[in-house]
Nucleic acid binder design. Structure first.
Lengths: 201, 201
DNA sequence: GGCGCTATTGGACGAAGGGCCAACTCGACA
DNA sequence: TGTCGAGTTGGCCCTTCGTCCAATAGCGCC
């Protein structure tokens, strides 16, 4: 299920868009103010935000920034009645999926939402992958982590032992347990996993 | 040296921007028509394009598309006197670095060009890296390439031999020559190189 | 003091990797 | 016909890796 969070201070727009999107199978949640949207916003729900640009006190751009600031990668689609080019460009540079002008064309909006969904899905997938890897790395002991970084650097057990001030035998044990905990069987898989986690770049 | 290719049908604008950019140390090349710019355009020169959006017959957006179509990743900055939001959004989605409105603010333009330079440098670096890897892979014999893909998949020599219908000894020879040609000494380095080249995803 | 976790090390053995030397086959090319 | 590159294989030897069994030592916690 994909949720569209609509934020617009115009109740009429909110209602019209909600109806359109619900008929297309989206779960819709409407908010008349940015504050209401941000309060208790659950970033873990797959979805995108459709934001009105011009809202009193707290415009869409600021809302986009607030989302980014709190680490949410929620895709954003802007909808505006009185925007200008610099604003639209700024929004796009800040990562907006699209920037539509009112009256909103249904096809454009649905297209933008489809792209937002793709982006959200992809981003969640990478995030989940990264989180899974980091969780596994968390289970490693400090020594095992050291061995990990030396192994992905391509060092031999003997060399690692020298660097860590111990003997090859000890490295073998750490290495074996580390591979076991990370759930990989070959060095190739280990390196790919480490690359995703950004180890030893 | 970073070159700024300016395309504008207004000679006055061309002259003014050229002067500004030259004083900032950029190499500037001016064109009064998209055709003149595209003719004999050398994509190997580090630089970015500053395009006027509204030009007779062949607008900036089409020019951006033409650049993309011919495989050039030349960063593009738009400058326009009479653009609209949908156009600016489209340009940004197509990868434009920035979309400025006339009269162009010098600081904005210089900022955009600085970002374009960063992007160009980064893109050229990745391209060069990729080209270097692909060149090395080109020197491999077909058999060596097969062995390469099996090695980065984490297979043992014996398993590779089975898959390729030969014996372990033969694989060792191919493997050794392959590593030698690719200039890597460890499997870890090999996997990282293969990842960049998009092998076995 | 005992328990669990972490780090350490030893011996032993089989499996796998890698280098060196040598040789054979086959198709392309001069 | 002879040479060359590519692919193939053999033997020999050394290094490296992985694993099993076994054991010691320090540290924090109940």
């Amino acid at each position: 299920m994909f949720t569209v969070f609509i934020v617009d201070d115009d109740a009429g727009v909110l209602k019209a868009l909600s109806r359109l999107l619900r008929t297309r199978g989206y779960d819709v949640r409407s908010f008349t103010s940015p504050q209401a949207f941000l309060a208790d916003h659950d970033a873990s729900i797959p979805g995108c935000a459709v934001l009105d640009l011009a809202m009193p006190g707290f415009d869409g751009i600021a809302l986009q920034r607030a989302l980014t600031a709190r680490g949410s990668s929620r895709p954003v689609i802007f909808v505006t009645g009185k925007g200008n080019i610099p604003t639209s460009v700024h929004a796009m540079k800040a990562g907006a999926v699209d920037f539509l002008t009112k009256p909103v064309n249904a096809r454009d909006l649905l297209g933008a939402i489809a792209r937002a969904e793709e982006r959200d899905t992809a981003s969640r997938q990478t995030q989940a992958e990264l989180a899974s890897i980091e969780a596994k790395i968390m289970t490693l002991t400090p020594r095992e982590r050291e061995v990990l970084s030396h192994v992905v650097a391509g060092q031999l057990n003997k060399q690692i032992a020298g660097d860590l001030g111990t003997v090859e035998k000890t490295i073998k044990v750490h290495r074996s347990r580390m591979m076991e905990k990370l759930g990989v069987r070959t060095v190739a898989d280990l390196v790919r996993m480490a690359e995703k986690a950004g180890i030893s770049q």
